[in-house]
Design a protein around this nucleic acid. Sequence first.
DNA 1: TGCTACCTACCTACCGATAGGTAGATAATA
DNA 2: TATTATCTACCTATCGGTAGGTAGGTAGCA
Lengths: 186, 186
Amino acid sequence: MDTRTRALDLARHYLQTLGFNGFSFQTVADALGIRKASLHYYFASKEDLGMALIQDYRTHYENWARKNASLPALEKLELLFVMFNKIATDEHKICPVGVLTADFNSLSKPLKKKILEFHLGQRAWLIRTFKEGIEQKTLRKDLDIEATAELFLSSIQGGLLMARLRNDPKVFKDLCKNLLKNISAP
Amino acid sequence: MDTRTRALDLARHYLQTLGFNGFSFQTVADALGIRKASLHYYFASKEDLGMALIQDYRTHYENWARKNASLPALEKLELLFVMFNKIATDEHKICPVGVLTADFNSLSKPLKKKILEFHLGQRAWLIRTFKEGIEQKTLRKDLDIEATAELFLSSIQGGLLMARLRNDPKVFKDLCKNLLKNISAP
DNA sequence: TGCTACCTACCTACCGATAGGTAGATAATA
DNA sequence: TATTATCTACCTATCGGTAGGTAGGTAGCA
């Protein structure tokens, strides 16, 4: 694996465990085994690193969505929860979007825009998938699609925080189970 | 208002807008109009300030709960949302517990414990209030009380994040409205 | 009343560590 | 030889924190 990719993976790890203001170039450089100045070769500034992190995460998510595009809607939603559950069980991490939103006011405008775009993309995916699910008769046909999307997004972000706080990934898993139960067709 | 109280108010403001690692003693001292060293007269360390902040927030919440203890359960829940909605509409702030959970891994053990205690207290309050609401027949009698408490707590935390991200307090308000609708007796 | 002792609420001036970032040299590779 | 990837060495600003001082108030006591 090349240095840039390794750097991004490490930076994402620190982002998800310590927050954007909780790690430094030094932190990442030490973990990589190179000098801080060398890291600036790949990322001109921390802002630059932030942009690369969110872009990287987005690409990862879009590949995941493409891969599962042809699955039934209910299965897609289950797999979405599996993806977030992996985050919760991996050292009580939280979602990069959630972290960056917590540190939102110390970020630059372009970075803020990038985070919002990702969030809205995920929201649009949920809405599309809910519609599919209703057509496939696996989801309740009286579902308020937009409200449900907001509920899913907010409780995923909050649920990851809670799993960390309570030191218990089961908190998140149960939450997901109930979210799905409540929208499934009777 | 005495200096310590003013300092706490300012620190809470910065906590809720910039995160625990996003502000410094200098930030607060400047806003107060005193020297950083003088702030150390009131709070020996940043850890100490963190403890005072969470204690202060807890006292505030417990006074609120006491004041409304005799109201009907549904009204209590409505007022809880009003309280959090005030946070969302005040410069896109988020809940101090949520912020501190995002920065959780850079905090000391005693501070972590204090945050967890507050969260569990709020969870217990929700569970008690749901039980009251069922007895008062304003909430659905088939409600899964524990699961609903987790859902409320997580979507409140996540909802505040989302309202900030989307630059739109309406996001939070609508979320609350739907949460209440889903648990109300038919 | 006058003196001593102590307290509160700040101050100046500093500490070592770390933050983000840069200039310029150097080693390896194509 | 040009490019890529890394280095040493440094910069300024800020971090959390401390040492020591001081103006002004208060309490005890002869």
